[in-house]
Design a protein around this nucleic acid. Sequence first.
DNA 1: GTGGTCTAGACCACA
DNA 2: GTGGTCTAGACCACT
Lengths: 135, 135, 135, 135
Amino acid sequence: MTTDRQGSGLQFILDPTGGVPYYRQIIMQIEMAIADGRLRTGIQLPTVRALAVDLQINPNTVARAYNELEIRGIVNTQQGTGTFISDKKIDLTDSERSEVLAGLVRSFLATASSYGFTVDQIMTYLDERKEGQKQ
Amino acid sequence: MTTDRQGSGLQFILDPTGGVPYYRQIIMQIEMAIADGRLRTGIQLPTVRALAVDLQINPNTVARAYNELEIRGIVNTQQGTGTFISDKKIDLTDSERSEVLAGLVRSFLATASSYGFTVDQIMTYLDERKEGQKQ
Amino acid sequence: MTTDRQGSGLQFILDPTGGVPYYRQIIMQIEMAIADGRLRTGIQLPTVRALAVDLQINPNTVARAYNELEIRGIVNTQQGTGTFISDKKIDLTDSERSEVLAGLVRSFLATASSYGFTVDQIMTYLDERKEGQKQ
Amino acid sequence: MTTDRQGSGLQFILDPTGGVPYYRQIIMQIEMAIADGRLRTGIQLPTVRALAVDLQINPNTVARAYNELEIRGIVNTQQGTGTFISDKKIDLTDSERSEVLAGLVRSFLATASSYGFTVDQIMTYLDERKEGQKQ
DNA sequence: GTGGTCTAGACCACA
DNA sequence: GTGGTCTAGACCACT
């Protein structure tokens, strides 16, 4: 299950194995695309029906993913028009943003270490990941 | 949710987000700990009840994790005594370990992106953090 | 369409006219119950199926309401156990809380005034509403 | 979303949350303004395009609101000239006005509760705010 | 054309 | 017993 959308340059891939629900996979892939800049404020996502056809799943499943993103303020949907990446301006000061990020990182590192990963291993992995995407 | 057990020296951390059930998180953390030597044959795991209290989850959830580990021969339950690491080796290839880490990273980046952080910003922050700790 | 649940003392009423979707009516009634203290942290909501039967609607519709509340952090669901009012601790200082509330009020008053209501009319209405509930 | 039009002295405010469509919010605000005398027979409403720009919404949405008002005889569209308040009276009973206000209040309280505020806290704040303004 | 709501029903995962 | 996911399909609301 894979698709390549013209506008956004997004390619969704669903993995039916692994137990991660489709709608959650869609959410995560959109979040990742926002994180690394492939999706920016104002860009329109594929329509519910189009993505459903591409991924060969039920439109309700796509709608559910979009709906959760909407509730979380990540996208913005306008009936009859489409679904767009929101311009969520988190009006935090730089220091507040740093605090939030520090908290996220701390929690992530704690979790990873409970799986036996050291900070060095994680940094190495992230660096490799970064290089892999550049190519 | 976190705990530090005396005997095993293990610290479990459960992530309620991301849809991975608790019992599976417990299983994975025990397997990883065995694979990298933090848990060795014969070591006693926390009792079901103790771990449940520590993690503030239902004892059935812990029991299920232990039960599945027992079925797979990874631990060994002695009625009335406790649950112990059996002598079955767990050899994880590098790629298997990488996969686990990749999953953790993916989930972390997805969360961070929903707060408006880009991968670049996160990498920069991590690099700074790393530098800061070296000194 | 009405129901009276024993545990919570909640009575849901759905209005099929007016165009407000059922799931949104359920959400608002739960939020209101939290606001005026009928629902407190840790209280279990009716099960999805029970509420669906009571309200004579599809369980999916109830689930959708609960799901949105969960995404917004207002309730906390545990598979196999039930849905509970979350202990959402908003770790804000008092002054930050005041600011948030002030913002909400300012926005509400602005909206109301665009419908031609004066602050005095609104206060009068609120006082009457308060009295009505005391009795 | 807010705007202040020269001619009418009307300020429209749209609430994107709560599920009430924009076109209906516009209609209600115009009706209320006519009912309480802020808009009188013959006054010109903002042009469709101007209001759409001000409110940052689709012109079709404004057009739909005006269109429905025209069908109900409340406004009067003159091709190429503009849209004007017609001489049809709108008499809202007190209970009808109360209903509108009740809806606004309900929605406001629901939102506030999702931030963890109780009705009591809100009332206290409003009372203090009122006192502060008297002085 | 877009998305939104609701139903009916199947099957799964968790406690 | 809980809630979660997904499908299929109907009908509505908005642009």
